[in-house]
Structure formats: structure tokens, C-alpha cells
């Protein structure tokens, strides 16, 4: 009596070819939690909260609408995201991760999606500033009505800085690079270094100057209230530049290694984006 084993169909499981939604979502949860608990991020948040020292003139609200109050939080996000992206290199687990079924781009995507965890915090800061200065409208009337672009630019700046931090970790994997980038960005804002209105000022991903110098119109021309609405054309184009820069930084961070053509294409797109938005803004 011969016994023959029945044929068993073996289906090759290729997890790398599946859509990595669940893994990326799980990684984004972990990376977002680690980002929010990072000491540098917490220090930036504490410094942003120091802007809540209202002197009764709406200064807090102005700082958050102009985006200046978000700058410490954005800098902290850049450094924390940079260090988070360099964690595997620091812990020397890169080779271990290479043995995982998922590609490296899944981990980078998780880190990029983890940046979205900063949105509730940025929104809460904006809401708190609005509540803190709500009485200023009634008493002094100096609080201008924010445009949607002004409400969006602060949280978008934080995510842009975070994406730049992750991209820097990809390009120059050293822990000093993120902090040096912060110093360079802040130094670029020093008066006189980059002339206002120049292409250099447009390239710096900080919207404060654009918002401060944008023309504004009264909300109700018939009355003498201090409500002003900022003109949105230049701001909208600068926000478009922000958004495109964030997407390009994310795309460049996800390009696999040894693909210089991909990097070159992304860099060319970034230059084209900056030039196009600058020309469109006039």
C-alpha cells in the first residue's frame, strides 16, 4: 500500500506588494506618539505657549495669526522629526529593519504621517489664543478677521518643518544637521540678511514676513471698526508653495537609496514650484 501525500498548494505571500495601510497606520501612531513626547518638541511647545502673555491688546492672537508664535513649535518639530528619522541609525538597527518584509518607504511614510499628530495641538493653540483674546474685539476693536490662509499657515508650517527634518535625515544622516538647519532658518529671519520681497524671502518656509507685509482691507468700510481682512492672493500662493514643498520633501524622503534621478526630479520640481508661485504672487 503506497501512501501519497496530497498536493498542497503553497501560495507565496508577498506582503511587500500589498497596500501597506495597516502597517503604515500603526507606525504613524507610534511615531506620532514619540514625536509628541520628544523633549525638544515639548520645549518648543512650551516656548509657543509663552506667547500667552496677553497685555490686553490682542498681541497673543496677532502672534498666532501671523505664525510667529508657531515658530518655536515648528523648530522643535523639525529637530524631533529629524532625530526620530535617525533613530534606527543611532540604534544601529538599519540592517535589522532591512530584513523586514516591508520596504523602507513604509517606515518613512509612518514617520511622515506621524507629523499629523501635531495638528490637534496647533489647532488647540489657535483656539486658546482666540478665546484668550476674544474680548479684545469688543473693547478695542483691533482684532482683524483672519483669512482661512492665516488660520492654516501655522499648522502647515509645523508639518512642513517636520517633513524637512525627515528629508534632512535622509540626505545628511547626522544628528547635528536638524539643529543647524534651525539655526540657519532663524538666522535667515534676521533683518537685513534677506531683503523683504526678494526670492530669498519667498524661499524661506516661514510665512510671518509675508503675512506682516500683506495688504489688508477693512471688513466693513462704512464703519470705523478696527477689523481688517488681509488680502489673500500672496498668502494663498505662499501657502501653495508651502504645501507643494511639504509634498516634495515627503516624496524625496521616500525615494529609495541609489536613485539620484529621482532626487534630481524632485529638486527640479521644487525649483519650478518656487518660481511659479513667486511669479503668480507678483
Amino acid at each position: 500500500m503506497s501512501s501519497v501525500s496530497p498536493a498542497v498548494a503553497i501560495a507565496a505571500h508577498r506582503p511587500a506588494r500589498e497596500r501597506p495601510r495597516r502597517e503604515v497606520a500603526a507606525l504613524a501612531r507610534i511615531e506620532g506618539r514619540r514625536l509628541l513626547l520628544h523633549p525638544v518638541f515639548l520645549l518648543g511647545l512650551a516656548l509657543s505657549m509663552l506667547f500667552f502673555r496677553d497685555e490686553g491688546n490682542g498681541a497673543t492672537w496677532e502672534a498666532f495669526v501671523d505664525g510667529f508664535a508657531y515658530l518655536p513649535l515648528a523648530c522643535g518639530t523639525l529637530v524631533a522629526a529629524n532625530l526620530g528619522a535617525l533613530r534606527s541609525r543611532r540604534d544601529r538597527t538599519d540592517e535589522l529593519y532591512e530584513s523586514m518584509p516591508r520596504p523602507r518607504s513604509s517606515r518613512v511614510a509612518g514617520q511622515l504621517l506621524g507629523l499629523l499628530w501635531t495638528l490637534p495641538i496647533a489647532g488647540a493653540l489657535m483656539a486658546a489664543a482666540r478665546i484668550d483674546n476674544s474680548f479684545v474685539v469688543d473693547n478695542l476693536g483691533v482684532l482683524h478677521a483672519p483669512s482661512p490662509g492665516q488660520l492654516v499657515q501655522g499648522p502647515l508650517m509645523i508639518i512642513t518643518f517636520g517633513a524637512i527634518g525627515i528629508l534632512l535625515a535622509r540626505i545628511a544622516p547626522s544628528p547635528i544637521v536638524g539643529a543647524v538647519a534651525v539655526v540657519a532658518l532663524i538666522a535667515a529671519r534676521l533683518p537685513g540678511l534677506i531683503p523683504a520681497g526678494s526670492i530669498g524671502a519667498w524661499l524661506v518656509p516661514i510665512a510671518t514676513d509675508v503675512f506682516q507685509y500683506a495688504p489688508s482691507t477693512p471688513c466693513d468700510p462704512g464703519t470705523s471698526s478696527g477689523c481688517h481682512r488681509v488680502a489673500t492672493s500672496a498668502i494663498a500662493w505662499h501657502l501653495s508653495y508651502f504645501f507643494g514643498l511639504t509634498l516634495l520633501a515627503a516624496a524625496a524622503a521616500m525615494i529609495p537609496r541609489r536613485r539620484p534621478l529621482g532626487f534630481a526630479a524632485v529638486a527640479a520640481l521644487a525649483v519650478a514650484l518656487a518660481a511659479a508661485t513667486r511669479l503668480a504672487a507678483g
Partner: peptide
């Protein structure tokens, strides 16, 4: 390093 930098800038 980043902590000192951000604290100083703050």
C-alpha cells in the same frame, strides 16, 4: 544641542 539652541532662541 537642540535643546540649548531652542531654549536660547526662545
Amino acid at each position: 544641542g537642540p535643546l540649548v539652541v531652542i531654549a536660547f532662541l526662545g
